[in-house]
């Protein structure tokens, strides 16, 4: 067969689809409730979506490399628990001050990195399916945090809460910290995915691991790096999350993994791997939280149906992906 060129259609639904959906949602929200576009509401929506958003950026890399991580929700809960316990334990020795909080941040970052690395090690070196490994660690972290909290809730000492609170509630130039952190993570993530050898290698492994191996790509190392990066970002999300409530329990972060995966898929990353885009994931996260927000603001549809609508959107996104594949196959 000779090389067949297909003239690209000017409008590509699978590229612009998520963006279009986002604009439609924003227009809908503004039309239903005048408060929707208010500063307070927008800040609220963006700040709440920051946790899932930061995690979803990491998830984009894992999924692009052909993997999956189901453990991120429990991991976040476990890290939150560890962080609170270690800060409470250090409080009597170091006194209520910024150093204690910095130690907590360090614990969270290290725990996340280690937990992610462990997932990656079991997957890339021991050779167990990602689904199985992370299903296992999902159960392990969930039960560990419940055990640490003895079935109840772990609370950050009141002496520290006031000090730590601004990390979630404060901000600069009127923009809340979680939003700033999310934006930085997303921009860096997009650059790493699009412009660096690591991003290229991640996509190559997801497209065809054999080809990557034969092209001198260090496949196990890159794979582990994607999970470790995700773990680190889970740690970062936890650092932003703990000051919000100042507590952690067995029900912290439940279903975060599904929301993160859904955001990645809605954003146009291919679930089987080989192609991923971080900006799409950001759009996916925003779509999911706007739906939630609109249902709460407008009383046409019960907020209880939130999950139903999100589910329909995820499935729709995959149908659109298939159209992309059909277009490629022509």
């Amino acid at each position: 067969m000779s090389a067949v060129t297909v003239p690209r259609p000017r409008f590509q639904l699978y590229v612009l689809g998520p963006l279009l959906a986002l604009f439609v949602l924003i227009a809908l929200g503004a039309w239903l409730n005048p408060n929707f576009l208010s500063y307070g509401n927008i800040t609220n929506v963006l700040a709440r979506s920051a946790f899932i958003g930061i995690i979803a950026v990491g998830m984009t890399f894992v999924i692009t490399s052909g993997g999956i991580d189901l453990s991120v929700g429990s991991m976040a809960a476990f890290i939150a628990g560890l962080m609170i316990l270690s800060m409470n334990a250090l409080l009597p020795h170091m006194g209520a001050g910024v150093p204690v909080i910095l130690m907590g941040v360090l614990v969270a970052a290290c725990a996340g990195l280690l937990a992610g690395w462990l997932n990656g090690f079991l997957i890339a070196k021991v050779g167990i399916e990602p689904f199985i490994v992370t299903l296992g660690t999902m159960g392990i972290y969930r039960s560990l945090v419940t055990w640490l909290a003895d079935g109840g809730t772990l609370s950050l000492d009141f002496g520290l809460r006031g000090l730590y609170r601004p990390v979630y509630y404060g901000g600069i130039f009127g923009i809340a910290w979680p939003i700033i952190v999310f934006a930085i993570v997303a921009i860096l993530g997009e650059i790493v995915m699009r412009q660096t050898a690591f991003g290229r290698h991640v996509a190559a492994i997801g497209a065809n691991e054999q080809v990557a191996r034969y092209s001198a790509v260090k496949v196990p190392r890159v794979r582990i790096a994607t999970y470790a990066l995700l773990g680190l970002l889970v740690g970062l999300a936890t650092i932003m999350y703990v000051p919000r409530l100042g507590s952690a329990s067995g029900s912290t972060g439940v279903l975060w993994e599904l929301e993160a995966i859904a955001a990645v898929i809605i954003g146009g990353t291919v679930l089987k791997g080989g192609y991923g885009r971080v900006w799409g994931t950001v759009v996916g996260v925003l779509i999911l939280s706007l739906i939630d927000n609109i249902l709460n603001l407008a009383s046409i549809v019960s907020p209880y149906l939130n999950g139903t609508i999100q589910g329909v959107i995820v499935i729709l996104a995959v149908v659109l992906q298939r159209e992309k594949k059909a277009a490629d196959a022509r």
Binding site: A207, Q210, V211, R213, Y214, G274, Y275
Partner: peptide, 12 residues
């Protein structure tokens, strides 16, 4: 199977 990423661009 081992040489080229068939779904990717020539440059990549």
């Amino acid at each position: 199977e081992k040489g080229l990423l068939l779904g990717k661009s020539l440059t990549e």
